[in-house]
Design a protein around this nucleic acid. Structure first.
Lengths: 192, 192
DNA sequence: AATAAAACAGACAGGTCTGTATAAATGTCA
DNA sequence: TGACATTTATACAGACCTGTCTGTTTTATT
């Protein structure tokens, strides 16, 4: 029965994502979740460990959501590459994770706050990004593209650019622009 | 003679950029700069104001550097669009702002820590991004592209994607990939 | 050299932070 | 019901934070 621990991580993720890691105190997480402080420190050795648990939850949740969104959009392998950007747009508009809204990418945010490359949270963020690239590579392979690795990296780069643009400048339509660019790039890759 | 104030803002920018805004205490900035606390509060009403001053300095410095880098690279208007990504690569490799190294984009970082869109630091970040887009639009116009506004937005999106990728995943070669993508997209735009 | 402005050092207040200690309350399961 | 583990409430330590206050020293101007 880890329901107490889970509830804690859930609340932590929400507050960390919406207000930042350093700016969110433990007391706030405890108050919001209704969990006692000693319970937190029974499950986690430190706040840092809680942060890591929250990011791991986010990684799992986000990738599950993204893959489902893409795969239920269409069966056509090439159309799935574009469906990525449709998914992004619903995310940017706050329709994906209703209780969280959209505050950029939790992992870009983590890498910002924990700038040191060797920090566990930064490393975990890099791993998350890599996992997404790996998934995109699979999609590119399914679409029969000649350079699935390269195209996956291209799509990932467009995705990161769209996220940053949507967040910093509050331009959710960056997803549509990225989609258009992806279309052009895929067409160019196909004709080689 | 604002040399004392300038030195303070300079030190603040360095520490904020390398270690984050919330994680950097005022005492550290004072110790590193050798400025007394009362001097800080004579020039700024609060830490937030110091943060804004540091970001304004960064905006000015970064854009000056970027424009110089592009304009001294070549006189060919179209080649300048690609020179953007060469500049990014030297930045990612830590050769641009020697004393700062590379810790991502200060404005993406600021938007991460101050997630609220109405926060002055977030707004200033959005303005910085917009100014860069405006500059790129000028370059696109000089290159005689048919849709300078749209292409500037595309290049900016590639730039943001490259920055995020270079920082989070520690992939400075993202600049080169973005350059390649830009080339393809420009070619596609020219042939319409 | 005299006067005014600026920067200095350092203590301090009041608050917040993480993490620990203690003891009461709650729930679980035999 | 009784034994046991988990969670709770609350107080606390020690560190750090921002911002203020006081008084001294340095710097600039005339």
């Amino acid at each position: 029965m880890t329901t107490r621990r889970d509830h804690l991580v859930e609340t932590a993720l929400k507050l960390f994502y919406m207000n930042g890691f350093n700016a969110t105190g433990i007391d706030r997480i405890l108050a919001e979740s209704g969990v006692a402080k000693m319970t937190l420190y029974k499950h986690f050795r430190s706040k840092d460990e809680l942060i890591l648990a929250a990011l791991e939850l986010r990684d799992q949740r986000f990738r599950t959501w993204l893959e489902a969104e893409i795969e239920q959009a269409t069966d056509d392998p090439e159309a799935r590459l574009l469906a990525l950007f449709d998914a992004l747009e619903t995310w940017f508009r706050g329709e994906a994770f209703k209780e969280l809204g959209f505050s950029g990418c939790a992992f870009i945010n983590a890498a910002s706050e924990f700038a040191d490359q060797s920090h566990p949270a930064h490393q975990l963020s890099a791993e998350h990004k890599q996992r997404v690239v790996d998934y995109l590579e699979r999609l590119c392979r399914d679409a029969g593209l000649s350079d699935p690795v390269g195209m996956a990296e291209q799509l990932a780069l467009l995705k990161e650019g769209a996220i940053a643009t949507a967040h910093v400048r509050n331009h959710p339509d960056a997803a549509r622009r990225a989609r258009q660019m992806a279309q052009t790039l895929i067409a160019a890759a196909r004709s080689t």
